[in-house]
Design a protein around this nucleic acid. Sequence first.
DNA 1: CTGAAAGCGCTTACAG
DNA 2: CTGAAAGCGCTTACAG
Lengths: 339, 339
Amino acid sequence: MKRPRQITIKDIARELKISVATVSRALRNAYDVSKSTRRKVLAKAKEMNYRANYNATALASNQSHNIAVILPTITNYYFSTVITGIQKVAYENNYNIIFYVTGESEERELSIIKSLSLSSIDGLLVSVTSESRNARQFKRIMDSGIPLVFFDRAAEIKGSSKVVQNDYEGAYLAVEHLIENGYQKIALIGGAENLSFSRERLRGYKDALKNHQLPVIKERIIHSAFNQNSGYEDTRRLLKLNDQIDAIFAVNDRKAVGAILALKESGIRVGAEVGVVGFTNDPIAAIVSPGLTTVEEPALEIGMKSCELLLKQITKKRTSPEVLVLQGTLIVRHSAIRG
Amino acid sequence: MKRPRQITIKDIARELKISVATVSRALRNAYDVSKSTRRKVLAKAKEMNYRANYNATALASNQSHNIAVILPTITNYYFSTVITGIQKVAYENNYNIIFYVTGESEERELSIIKSLSLSSIDGLLVSVTSESRNARQFKRIMDSGIPLVFFDRAAEIKGSSKVVQNDYEGAYLAVEHLIENGYQKIALIGGAENLSFSRERLRGYKDALKNHQLPVIKERIIHSAFNQNSGYEDTRRLLKLNDQIDAIFAVNDRKAVGAILALKESGIRVGAEVGVVGFTNDPIAAIVSPGLTTVEEPALEIGMKSCELLLKQITKKRTSPEVLVLQGTLIVRHSAIRG
DNA sequence: CTGAAAGCGCTTACAG
DNA sequence: CTGAAAGCGCTTACAG
């Protein structure tokens, strides 16, 4: 199929009997064009239904208006919401987002980074794989001068920009809530240990325990994958402990749901006997029974802020690293109430 | 921040003392290059860590390797899975996907289409807004010669390509399953009526009823939005009917969950008293209690197939419209069992 | 404020 | 099989 030729600035120039240079300037609102020519050009562009060829503008100006986003998955509430936020601000600022999903595979992540054509993108938004050891590669990209901001899951690179939720405080809140509701033997079912937010949540858990004179017991802490089934398995393991636990704090809601399922299956009443608190506020938290008490993550905001930050770095000449920490809030439902 | 210059084919040409034309040809595996030069070029490219500038290739060859995908939302199981499938095959074929989310807003959809720079994309994948009346605009894009394939939600345009699930049959299966389990007064809580798949599912519902000598009763059919809350509201309305219903078929699982919640709230036992069947097989279907019987949609496959189809149309010279209909399967859990 | 011209990094007839 | 040259649709010093 032959595609009809698109309208170009040449066409506008010809119609208006002015140079393409002037048309170009008028279109981009450059400062050095008279108001009247600008008006004429804009009107004619609209009339002819002109649409810029981004490949040409990108090539000529060395700005692609493309942002690459690399993330582990999009088929869950958290990431799909984050990327919706990213897309929102990208769209409003006339940037395209090109996304790559790693599926939590470190190799895939590496191959994506390696095959990335840096001349075709203006910046990078990334949330790292749970097993990721590709920090060096990301460092190299940053060193090459292309802006990169991490969201949620950051590689540990000095001087990198990132936007994350306050994982420490969220976890602290969650565990404190359990304690205040009378639970004492609180287990943690966590995620991959090499992810900094896992460690932060672990730290919040420990500190909450300590500050309330409760012991931190190694057997009660399990690290595994982020999915529902892992939560289920972790819980079954915990249930076998000699010193019976009476509450579970899960790194995320999927694992918390797995925990609830395991508890119910064992005939244990969630809440009355064993309290459960999650993290995220995935819609399922309101659907499981009993309703899951959880720490809400500001997913949409994380997406929007990280994209805003990246655009700022792309636009400004000098970029100093910036770290944004957003607060979560505890959503109380029924899974961590004794009565 | 200054970005270091990227390696270009000129650099490779200089190193190898050959022309850029030859380098270009070797890189693209053109037929008319000697094996030995090709080998040398490839080796050197690798050595220098050459990466093509896509904006340049796009401009010169009039192929951007960008695919635009326009869809209502990505924050649900179905669409996030579909787009994962799209991304998968796009990535494997070296295409970027640029996505736009309409948020179910017809105006937004229109403004996205209108601002689309057709010279910057090779093809379009679209799933239409539930209130969409932008068929004319899509028609215009197709007429302009750029390949477009609809997935899941298609605008009604003669000769358009699309990939959808078998909505009629899925609905038929669902309703028949209810009938076989002893339910007789089956209601339908549907989605926007102007979407063809809504009508298909309605048709399946009606035919299943008719073929089993059951009456189709208008009061038992409600059309509203696709979310959980609408399912809840619809159900409350149905519960007020004089002639009490004994089963609900919902267009999707979110609505089915809303229905279950409404039933429970009214003290009605799901399954035993009122059966519920959904559509999608969203992970929540396994989490609600009782487990939701539902028609599984092949979401990942829909995404992959639609992208494959589009790429085929982009690559081939002539493109004849193609329609793919994928089968769903009934997943039986506990929400539609009497005992 | 405007225009002519060079250039962005590729591709592709054309000629040999 | 290879090279010189024109061109893709823009942008941007430079000169006026």
